[in-house]
């Protein structure tokens, strides 16, 4: 099936002049639906996290409305992103999974150098593929966080259909997933918007392309592979 997808969905030219296509339209759609619904879920959920946030729920029209919005956003958070693995051009979504679940030594070396990079220093790490070690960890947090927060959320939503012992455990699981994903999201936003060295990656999630300069500096192994693949394709077409 994967092969069929490969042949049916012609691979677009990845390196165009001084730009490299990093994310397909489907991947960008998934990312932003997930990101926006995550924040809607986070803010509408604050009312049950602490009473100090309850007055702020007036923004949504009261805590009962906030709870309703929370459930609607949850559907987008799960269903839209889940569907993207099966409709349109899902090949890239599966590839992403394949990438992040193969955690190699070079990824680990990147993670070790990451704190230094985070605070603006320069760490030493080997050349990285499309996703570096840190990005893989962020992806894994997103994947497992989404799975656990969704399963516990379903149990909490339909509490009366589940045994109380299970519902009782759903609350800490839901909160733990939220805390980990929120902490990761804060770091993720910093790297995408505020970090001088890595924010050049942002355009990849907007129009899909990053500069070749960025690709070479941060993901040389990936860039070299694309270059090789592209020249091979061109030879074939000649």
């Amino acid at each position: 099936m994967a092969l069929k997808m490969e042949t049916r969905n012609q691979m677009p030219k990845r390196i165009v002049e001084d730009k490299v296509l990093r994310f397909s339209a489907g991947e960008r759609l998934s990312h932003w639906v997930h990101a926006i619904s995550f924040f809607v879920l986070l803010f509408t959920g604050l009312g049950v996290l602490s009473t100090s946030f309850q007055p702020a729920m007036a923004i949504f029209g009261g805590i009962q409305v906030a709870q309703l919005i929370h459930r609607i956003a949850a559907i987008f958070f799960v269903v839209v992103v889940g569907l993207m693995f099966f409709v349109g051009n899902p090949r890239y979504h599966w590839r992403w999974l394949k990438f992040v679940f193969s955690f190699k030594k070079s990824d680990w070396q990147h993670v070790c150098a990451f704190p230094k990079e985070f605070f603006g220093g320069h760490g030493n790490y080997p050349e990285q593929e499309k996703y570096n070690g840190g990005e893989k960890i962020n992806s894994l947090i997103t994947i497992f966080g989404t799975i656990f927060i969704t399963l516990s959320g379903v149990v909490m939503w339909f509490a009366s259909s589940f045994p109380p012992a299970l519902v009782r455990w759903a609350y800490p699981v839901h909160d733990l997933s939220m805390f980990i994903m929120t902490a990761a999201a804060i770091g993720h936003i910093y790297l995408g918007l505020l970090h001088p060295d890595s924010r050049a990656a942002m355009s990849g999630m907007i129009n899909g392309y990053v500069s070749t300069k960025f690709a070479r500096a941060h993901h040389r192994e990936w860039y070299e592979r694309l270059k090789k693949e592209q020249s091979m394709n061109e030879q074939k077409n000649v």
Binding site: F118, F119, G120, D175, I180, I189, Y190, H195
Partner: peptide, 17 residues
């Protein structure tokens, strides 16, 4: 612990900037 983790991430970002 979660509150400290989220607060820690926010503090790390401020420090990073």
């Amino acid at each position: 612990v979660g509150t400290v983790a989220v607060g820690g991430a926010a503090a790390a970002v401020v420090l990073g900037v």
